[in-house]
Each structure stands twice: as C-alpha cells, then as structure tokens.
C-alpha cells in the first residue's frame, strides 16, 4: 500500500455568512473590505486529510499533506489556516490582484502541482461558494486520467490501494470504489472541521510556505469566459403577514397556489 501524499486545494472566498453585493459598475461582486475566509468545502478537505493521518485510516500511512491555493497575496491567509488545522506545508500560486483562475485553468495548475508534489490523492471541495461552478475536481481527474469520486460523505481505505467512497447523489447515496491515485471532492456531511487552536496557529507560522507563479509552473493566464455583466437578482417583494390559518388559506387561494 502506497503512503499517501495528499494535495489539498483551498480557495479564499467571501465568507459564507456575508451577503454579497453587486458592485456599482456591475462587473462583479464588491470584495473590498469584505470578510473573506476559506471556502467551507475546502475546510472539509483539510479536516478529512488530517483525520486520515490522525486516525491512521490508510494502511500505508500519510507521508505528506500539502495545501495549495492560487490567488492574490491574501490567499496566504487561508494556507496558514490549513496549516494550523494540520497540513504540513503550503504552496501559494501567486496571482495578480483581481486575477482569477477559471476552473479549467485551476485544474491545470493542480495537475502541475500533483506532478511536482508527487501527490497520489487530491481532496477538493465540491464547489466554491463564490463561483458555484463545481468543476475543478472533475476537470483535474480528467486531465490526469485518474478516477474521481465527487460529493463524498464517507471515505474508507482498503488493501491494495483501494479507496471506497460514499457519494451524495440525487435521491440518496451511492458507493464507488477505485484505486489510488485518485481525486475526491467533499460534501458537507463528510466531517465537522476543527477550529485551529492558538498554539497550532503559532506553529503554522513556522511551516514552509512556498511561493510560485504561473510561469514557474509553465502556465499562463487563460480566460475562456468573459463576464459581460453582473446584476442583482430580481428582488422578491415580501408579501403581507396574515393573522391566522384561515387568512393563510384565503391568501394562498387568492394567489392561485391552492
């Protein structure tokens, strides 16, 4: 059984509890001065990687957990968070301010990282809560020619490099099995991410954080989609409150819903 070398991609996004506002120029969402944090699904990826090591779930053991993020200077913050949660190292693919990778470009960055880090398991979030694309993990698996298990709610390791993953699908759950190397994307039910403790946050500051550019990876910025405009969704006008159940039934009939 191979020892696991886990690559954990993490993304810095607007905090899930913040209600995003479209900017005045209608070119995107206002990000200046807005609280950012690690994409919640990526926290699950980091947590799962660390648990695999702590609970000794993989017969071959865990040799390395490397967190990686592509983004502006501040993306280093989420890498430090990942290291405070238990990742061994970080790789920061530095982008210019305002530059963003589309999922295909991100998958190409990760393909290169997998080669350089000799990773045999990549655990990604199932989607990032900003773009909501839900593509990067599947694209990476396609580019590498590796098996994939998306929306994982349980991951088990067996003999002979086999990994059994329970996936959340429409209407229930599905279980698939594949061999390392592979790509897994996490769903909410997979685990409950830990909070980084203060001593661990301090320790994380000493862990290695490698900075690279797209050019170092032999890649360049490649945007296939042009955002023509970003608008607020049509506002729903909240209706009236009714006094009692009779009023509710009457109002629903009036609205044609009953």
């Amino acid at each position: 059984m191979s020892a696991l070398r886990i690559l954990v991609p993490v993304k810095r996004v607007i905090d899930y509890a913040v209600k995003p506002r479209v900017n005045k120029a209608m070119t995107g969402v206002e990000t200046a001065g807005v609280k950012h944090s690690m994409n919640p699904f990526d926290e699950l990826s980091v947590e799962e990687s660390v648990r695999i090591r702590e609970k000794k779930r993989a017969p071959g053991g865990v040799e390395d957990i490397c967190a990686i993020s592509a983004g502006p200077a501040k993306a280093a913050d989420v890498l430090r968070t990942a290291m405070a949660m238990g990742a061994d190292r970080g790789v920061h693919v530095e982008l210019r301010d305002g530059e963003e990778l589309e999922p295909l470009a991100a998958a190409k960055v990760l393909r290169e990282a997998v080669r350089r880090q000799r990773s045999n398991l990549v655990i990604l979030g199932k989607q990032s809560i900003d773009d909501d694309a839900a593509q990067t993990g599947q694209m990476l698996a396609g580019l590498l020619g590796w098996p994939q298990a998306t929306q994982a709610s349980a991951v088990e390791f067996g003999e002979g490099d086999t990994v059994t993953v329970t996936k959340e699908v429409d209407g229930g759950a599905e279980t698939v099995r594949a061999k390392l190397p592979m790509v897994i994307t996490t769903d909410l039910r997979l685990n409950e991410p830990r909070y980084a403790s203060l001593p661990n946050i301090m320790k994380a500051k000493k862990k290695k954080l490698e900075k690279v550019s797209l050019a170092d990876y032999g890649l360049q910025s490649d945007s296939r989609l042009k955002v023509l405009k970003v608008t607020e969704p049509p506002a729903r006008k909240g209706g009236d409150k009714v006094e009692d159940v009779g009023g509710l039934v009457a109002k629903l009939k009036e609205l044609g819903a009953l």
Partner: peptide, 12 residues
C-alpha cells in the same frame, strides 16, 4: 447565478 444566487452573471 453565482454567490448562492445573490448575483446573476452574464458570461460569454
């Protein structure tokens, strides 16, 4: 829709 439907993007 992006950002949990809080914004609507038109992309080419």
């Amino acid at each position: 829709p992006i950002y949990a439907g809080n914004a609507i993007a038109t992309v080419e």
